[in-house]
Structures are given as C-alpha cells and as structure tokens.
C-alpha cells in the first residue's frame, strides 16, 4: 500500500532553460508518494520536469531528489532502474513483436532473458493484450500501442511509474480499464504513480494528489480531496418528490440553494451545515431523500482557478 507521508520527489530551486526559454522556473516543491496527477496547460513544463527527473534532460540550476536518489548523472542508472516511464509520444521498436518489446524492456533493466519473457507475458495479460502480442508492433492500433507502452513501463515492477497521457487514444471502455489498472497499482502495491494528463476526470478518478504546474512553477501540491472541497461548505441532494417546500425550509434556515437542470439541489452555508438538519427538513417537507453528499468542485474548476490565479498574479 502506498505511504503518503513520505516525500517521493523533492525539488529545490529547480530551474531548466532551453537557451533563452525558461521551462522550469525555480521550482521548490515536495511531492508525496501515492498516485499523483501532474496537471498543467500545454507548455507548462510537465514533460520537461519528467525528463529532468529521469535524467533525460540536465538541470540548469537547483537540486532534485527522487526515490531518495539525488538527480545527478551518477545516479541516473539507479533512478531509471526504479522508474517505469510511459512516454506520451507514439514510440515503439520496429520489427519486433509486442511481447518481445516488453521482454526487451525488462532485459534492458538488467533481468535475464527467460525471466523477462515470462514477466512480459504476465504484464501483457494484466494489460489485456491477447494473441496480438505476437504481432509486430508497427501493425498495432493506437490503443494497443498505449497498452504496450504501459506494459513495458511496469514490466520491472518499478517503485515509481510515470505515465504521460496514459488514456489518450483509448476508447471509453479501454480508458476505464486503463484507469482501473492504474488505480490497482496505486492502491494495492508499493508503486507510486505520476500521471501527466489533460483529462482531469482521470485525475479525479484515480489520483490521491494533484500537482499543478503553471508557467514553469508548481503553485499547488494538494490532495485531490482537499482541492475539490468547496470554499463554502455545501451539500448536494437529490430528493424523491416535490422539492419546493424543502428549498423554502432550507432558505428560511439561512442556506443558499441552487437547483441544477437535472434536479440536484446544492445547499451552501458559510456557517457550515449539519447533515442531520437536512434529514429533518426533508421529513418536515415530506419528501424522501435519494442521496445526500458533500458537494465537490470539479477538477476542471479547480484547475482553471489555479491557472488563472497564477497567471493573473504574474501579470
């Protein structure tokens, strides 16, 4: 099980420049273990940060530490041995079958050929790749290649799995299956997972933490739970029956109400809401309650608020 109290990645004044372009701007952040969503608009520096952590791009300034290893050339081999990386790009090794590509990945990490082959079959089973594993990789569809990239990333049981846009190009069914696999790895193994994605629902669904990268900085590293908690305490309620009387009672008790087109009632109060009161009001209004849950802000809203906040601050 993941231990969220430890720091997975520690960044101290990390700066990365490409010529005059500043990709990472003096980032200082602690990213905990668990399943982390790395969010950010296009060009925010997500890929650069990942490449820097993998040792594929050298730091310009600052210090980075990942899995208790300082990110220095001396440790690149150790770091890469303990990290599984699924690139966003459509990349593969031409001329070999899917199972061979996964086997090759295991062998390149330092495992013997026979064990690697056995393990390759194991992870391909886990990834839902059937007999197509014996076909040459260049004949694969985008979705199959995504699964293959995922398989090669997890084949060596890394301590940290970095997934760059893992669900892009997948149909809805495959997307759900992929998220399930990520969730399983994050929740039931010691593996930490970093997901770089634009699909915020994916983050909402599987991530424990979200780190938002904007303009080369990380202004927020927080649990998804906390990020989605509204500033004003709120509840979302679905009633069985006419809700007008219930809304009247709630408003008389000083709550702000709103009703969505599909009938979900949102109750807000800056003084807090006692959940038992909701049940009492429903009894008074003689309506049944189908569901009552604390209201949450969508990740899209959270993300936009953070990005706009940083960008307006910069201006």
């Amino acid at each position: 099980m993941s231990n969220s109290s430890e720091s997975l990645i520690s960044l101290q004044n990390v700066t990365k420049r490409y010529g005059s372009f500043l990709a990472l701007d003096n980032i200082t952040a602690e990213i905990p273990t668990g399943v982390i969503g790395l969010l950010g608009p296009n060009g925010a520096g997500k890929s650069t940060l990942i490449k820097t952590l993998l040792g594929l791009a050298a730091l310009t300034e600052g210090q980075a530490r990942i899995l208790d290893y300082n990110v220095t050339p001396k440790n690149y081999r150790l770091i890469r041995r303990n990290i599984g990386y699924m690139p966003e790009d459509d990349c593969f090794i031409e001329g070999i079958a899917g199972v061979e590509m996964v086997q090759l990945a295991a062998q390149l990490t330092g495992y013997p050929p026979l064990h690697s082959l056995q393990r390759a079959h194991e992870v391909l089973d886990f990834c839902g790749t059937g007999q197509e594993r014996y076909r040459q990789v260049e004949t694969y569809s985008t979705g199959m290649r995504q699964k293959l990239k995922f398989a090669q990333a997890i084949v060596h049981s890394p301590q940290l799995l970095i997934l760059d846009e893992p669900t892009s190009g997948l149909d809805p069914e495959e997307r759900l299956a992929m998220l399930k696999r990520i969730d399983l790895l994050g929740k039931r193994t010691d593996m930490s997972v970093i997901i770089c994605t634009h699909i915020l629902k994916d983050v909402q669904q599987v991530c424990d933490y979200a780190a938002v990268l904007v303009d080369g900085t990380i202004p927020v590293v927080e649990t998804v739970e906390n990020l989605r908690r509204p500033r004003t305490p709120s509840y979302q309620i679905v009633l069985a029956g006419n809700s007008d009387h219930f809304i009247e009672i709630a408003e008389l008790n000083g709550l702000t109400t709103s009703v969505s087109p599909i009938g979900v009632i949102t109750l807000q109060s800056s003084n807090g809401i006692d959940e038992t009161m909701i049940w009492q009001w429903a009894q008074t209004a003689k309506v049944g309650i189908q569901s009552v849950v604390p209201a949450k802000v969508s990740m899209e809203d959270v993300f936009l608020q953070i990005v706009q906040g940083v960008q307006s601050g910069n201006q």
């Binding site: 594929l56 890469r80 041995r81 690139p87 459509d90 593969f92 090794i93 590509m101 390149l108």
Partner: peptide, 10 residues
Amino acid sequence: NRSFLLYYSR
C-alpha cells in the same frame, strides 16, 4: 519511431 525514449528511460 522515437524508440530512443524507450531505450534511454532504461
């Protein structure tokens, strides 16, 4: 085929 990413991440 951008295979370098697969090689060099090892």
